[in-house]
Design a protein around this nucleic acid. Structure first.
Lengths: 186, 186
DNA sequence: AAAATGATTGACTAATCAGTCTATAAATAT
DNA sequence: ATATTTATAGACTGATTAGTCAATCATTTT
């Protein structure tokens, strides 16, 4: 078994449940079934562990987002695929998605360099820029579009998590909300 | 001077800057210029302080939201007033707004009872329901509308905070984004 | 004015926590 | 086979922290 993975997995669960402050490294180690020292062998500090967990989780999401989106299709279909993938991932990986949000609205987020953040957003912004150039998306500032789309997704995800919807109902909501978003930005 | 207020004010700044975990009560007391014991005289535990701070801040926002919105005007104008007020408050009270978000996406949020949350949302949901009944808003589930509006506001606020916009430019963005939202939900 | 209640202090404590250290075991390189 | 590096363990420590406590000081009630 991969201990590094095991540590991240355990830390995620505990951070989500108790928060960063109320999750001692000793508890992470114990729950992960390893010794205290082993944790610090892989991650020099608790902060480093937290940052690594964020990078890890974020890359999981990004990976999934662009999966299954063949570039042959229309911009709308590609966009919809990314939209749907993201919400599906969030629903299937609630703890992970919640962690990303928890991290992003915490002082830990400021530990990530602006360059890193810009780098992360670049492909998404480029994609939106292409949409504007193709006269499909409204000619709004891409950063504005990006933030609006992101928060829309966060909102829909929150709504989906607030009640117990059947899978069919969920798909319906996703389709419906996509149209709302699409109408707003095109 | 009101020490209770002073404690809340100081705690807010420190929580926003360092997070809950990295803000000892001793530091709050010192920065607020009071003795350690005094803090615990007013708030039995640190958790109680955090919860009180959330309630306090949230009620500030709610108060401001509905200010200046005379009920004689059209639903659109009332809605726009609430929308604008909220974003303006968020921009003028960045630490407060950030704190609300930080708190909401932290495990502390689960300490608030579902009843309290429902009670908080009730007037907003009623307002949206009225909008639907008046055939102004789309007949979507009010909870969905509510979440979408909230996250839209959070998004625009994030965008406004990401760069330095002039006041005129800011107003323009708010007007523009309001139209986007309004078109989406009507 | 006396009594009672509430506010304020800061030293103190018991517990906890991040991170260290020394020792072994396992794996890899020479 | 030997040497070197890496992985793992867990006891230990120094610092920190939430919360207590006993003692004043201030204010209000009787």
């Amino acid at each position: 078994m991969d201990k590094k993975e095991e540590i991240l997995k355990t830390a995620l669960q505990l951070f989500v449940e108790f928060g960063f402050h109320a999750t001692p490294t000793s508890k992470i180690a114990k729950e992960a079934g390893i010794a205290n020292g082993t944790l610090f062998h892989y991650y020099k500090t608790k902060d480093e562990l937290i940052l690594a967990l964020y990078a890890h989780t974020k890359s999981h999401l990004t990976e999934y987002m662009y999966a299954k989106a063949s570039k042959d299709e229309s911009l709308e279909l590609v966009f919809k695929s990314i939209y749907t993938n993201t919400i599906e991932w969030a629903q299937e990986n609630k703890a992970e998605f919640y962690f990303i949000q928890q991290f992003s609205t915490s002082p830990f987020y400021s530990l990530i360099s602006p360059e890193e953040i810009t780098k992360q957003a670049k492909p998404h912004l480029d994609f939106l820029q292409a949409g504007i150039k193709a006269v499909v998306l409204k000619p709004l500032p891409v950063e504005m579009l990006y933030t609006l789309i992101n928060s829309h997704i966060a909102g829909i995800n929150q709504y989906l998590s607030s009640e117990e919807f059947s899978t069919t109902k969920q798909k319906k909501i996703i389709n419906e909300s996509f149209l709302l978003l699409w109408d707003m930005i095109t």
